[in-house]
């Protein structure tokens, strides 16, 4: 029971993004960090897993079911993609937006349990006090927290987070990632997050998947991937790893001359 990616081929016009991309299965209760330099197709891969883009060849399947063959609604119940651009410009209140994510787009009145779950999710991320504010009045970081609320309240089986902490302060980054880690284990879901801060990523992720122009170039335990020569080469930097007294890894990067 897992998510499998097999033989993905994708191109924007003549610009080939993936040529037969394969990945080891993603297991439930595991959090994977998707890492790699800018522009190698991390967001495109996410959009294919979420079914927003169709691969030219190959398939993404969840528990043996090809995702792109599922009807929009069923797919959206199982997979949720939190896109990189979390800024919203609609005149909608925070609570309304999260409730909308909870209810999908079925019409009618929100049930009591829906409303309660939205309250709880807002509490989890500590933004209950913002619930009546309009999205447009919030800061970039606060908008990102609202987007995370939308992701968590959906309760998907596969949670895809495209740079979920890019606008957050230090404390919020730690809070959000440990919350995501906890939920991944508790709800036994598959979480894949694109992260640029490798030190932060290796504290929370169970697995690193590094992609570059040549597809998946390293995949496995975070430390193992970081110690792999391919990682530095993919980014074009020299990487040094240090372990502090608490046992956390730190990643130093220097420009490769």
């Amino acid at each position: 029971m897992s998510l499998a990616i097999k033989g993905l081929r994708f191109a924007y016009g003549t610009n080939v993004v993936f040529d037969r991309l394969d990945a080891a299965p993603f297991n439930r209760g595991e959090m994977t960090a998707l890492v790699g330099p800018n522009g190698v197709g991390k967001s495109s891969l996410f959009r294919m897993i979420a079914g927003h883009l169709k691969p030219l060849e190959g398939a993404v399947s969840l528990d043996g079911v090809n995702i792109s063959t599922l009807p929009d609604r069923q797919r959206a119940e199982r997979v949720f993609l939190l896109s990189q651009h979390t800024a919203m410009r609609a005149a909608l209140a925070v609570f309304d937006v999260v409730l909308l994510a909870k209810r999908g787009w079925q019409g009618g009145k929100a049930s009591d349990s829906d409303v309660r779950q939205v309250e709880e999710t807002l509490d989890l991320l500590g933004i209950e006090h913002l619930s009546d504010r309009l999205i447009t009045e919030l800061s970039g970081g606060q908008q990102q927290l609202v987007a995370l609320c939308q992701a968590l309240v959906r309760d998907p089986q596969v949670l895809l987070l495209d740079e979920p902490t890019s606008a957050l302060d230090l404390r919020r980054q730690l809070e959000v990632l440990s919350l995501v880690q906890k939920i991944t284990i508790e709800r036994k879901i598959i979480t894949i997050a694109a992260l640029h801060d490798l030190s932060l990523a290796c504290r929370f992720a169970d697995r690193f998947m590094l992609i570059s122009r040549d597809g998946v170039v390293a995949d496995g335990h975070p430390e193992q991937v970081l110690r792999n020569d391919m990682t530095g080469r993919a980014y074009g930097v020299r990487i040094e790893i240090e372990r502090n007294a608490k046992g956390n890894l730190f990643v130093h990067a220097e420009l490769a001359s």
Binding site: H52, L100, W105, G107
Partner: peptide, 24 residues
């Protein structure tokens, strides 16, 4: 249009967001 009002509210959040909620 009334039958599509939740979809349209979702669309107001942006194409990506709406697509993530399964809106065609």
């Amino acid at each position: 249009c009334w039958a599509r009002n939740s979809m349209m509210t979702a669309l107001a959040m942006g194409d990506d967001r709406a697509a993530s909620l399964g809106v065609p």
